[in-house]
Structures are given as structure tokens and as C-alpha cells.
Amino acid sequence: MMFKEVKALSSKWLSNPHQELSLHERLKRKQSIDLRDNHIIVDLGNGYDEIKPINPDKRYN
């Protein structure tokens, strides 16, 4: 017979259910665009900037 440990639903766990995963692991799972050395910054002229990828096919792996 197997038992599974039940995690208590604390407010800390509910506020961040991904706390056991690193940021890099979450980016890999979502297949996010890797912006490291792969971005240009466009000044919108209203106090905001837009970050665009140079190569949108470069993904975390």
C-alpha cells in the first residue's frame, strides 16, 4: 500500500505554488523566448520601453 504525502494548503503555498521549481526550470517548461543577448529595446517616448527579441525562435533549453 502506497501513501502520498499531503501538503498543507498554507497561504504561503497558495501565493506561490511554484516555489519548489527554479526560475530557469519554469522558463524551460513554458518554452519561453531566451532574451539573453537576444533583444532590442525600443523607447516608446512616453516613459515606457518595449523589449523585442531579435530571434523569436531562440528558446530556453
Score class of each variant (00 low, 15 high):
1 M>D: 06
1 M>R: 13
1 M>L: 09
2 M>E: 14
2 M>H: 12
3 F>W: 15
3 F>H: 15
4 K>Q: 11
4 K>D: 11
5 E>K: 11
5 E>N: 14
6 V>Y: 08
7 K>A: 09
7 K>R: 13
7 K>F: 11
8 A>T: 12
8 A>Q: 10
9 L>N: 11
9 L>E: 15
9 L>T: 02
10 S>M: 01
11 S>N: 13
11 S>V: 06
12 K>F: 05
12 K>R: 14
13 W>V: 08
13 W>G: 01
13 W>D: 01
13 W>I: 07
14 L>G: 00
14 L>I: 08
14 L>M: 10
15 S>H: 09
16 N>R: 13
16 N>H: 07
17 P>F: 03
17 P>W: 10
17 P>S: 06
17 P>V: 02
17 P>I: 02
18 H>K: 09
18 H>C: 15
18 H>S: 12
18 H>P: 00
19 Q>R: 09
20 E>L: 12
20 E>F: 09
20 E>M: 05
21 L>Q: 12
21 L>A: 12
21 L>T: 09
21 L>M: 15
21 L>S: 12
22 S>G: 12
22 S>I: 03
23 L>K: 06
23 L>C: 10
23 L>G: 04
24 H>W: 14
25 E>L: 02
25 E>A: 14
26 R>P: 03
26 R>G: 10
27 L>P: 00
27 L>T: 00
28 K>I: 12
29 R>N: 12
29 R>T: 10
29 R>D: 06
30 K>E: 15
30 K>P: 01
31 Q>F: 06
31 Q>L: 10
32 S>A: 15
32 S>V: 11
32 S>D: 05
32 S>C: 14
32 S>N: 07
33 I>N: 05
33 I>S: 03
33 I>K: 02
33 I>F: 06
34 D>K: 05
34 D>P: 01
34 D>Q: 06
35 L>Y: 11
35 L>R: 02
35 L>N: 01
36 R>I: 05
37 D>I: 02
37 D>H: 11
37 D>A: 07
37 D>Q: 06
37 D>R: 04
38 N>H: 03
38 N>K: 07
39 H>N: 09
40 I>Y: 14
40 I>N: 13
40 I>S: 13
40 I>M: 11
41 I>F: 00
41 I>Y: 00
41 I>L: 05
42 V>P: 00
43 D>N: 15
43 D>E: 12
43 D>P: 03
44 L>A: 03
44 L>W: 03
45 G>Y: 05
45 G>D: 09
45 G>L: 00
45 G>K: 00
46 N>G: 13
46 N>P: 01
46 N>W: 01
47 G>H: 02
48 Y>F: 04
48 Y>A: 05
48 Y>K: 08
48 Y>W: 03
49 D>W: 05
49 D>I: 08
50 E>F: 11
51 I>S: 00
51 I>D: 02
52 K>E: 05
52 K>H: 14
52 K>M: 04
53 P>H: 08
53 P>Q: 08
53 P>A: 09
54 I>M: 03
54 I>A: 02
54 I>C: 05
55 N>Y: 08
55 N>K: 14
56 P>G: 06
58 K>A: 01
58 K>H: 10
58 K>L: 09
59 R>Q: 07
59 R>P: 05
59 R>H: 11
59 R>C: 10
60 Y>A: 03
61 N>E: 15
61 N>I: 00
61 N>V: 04
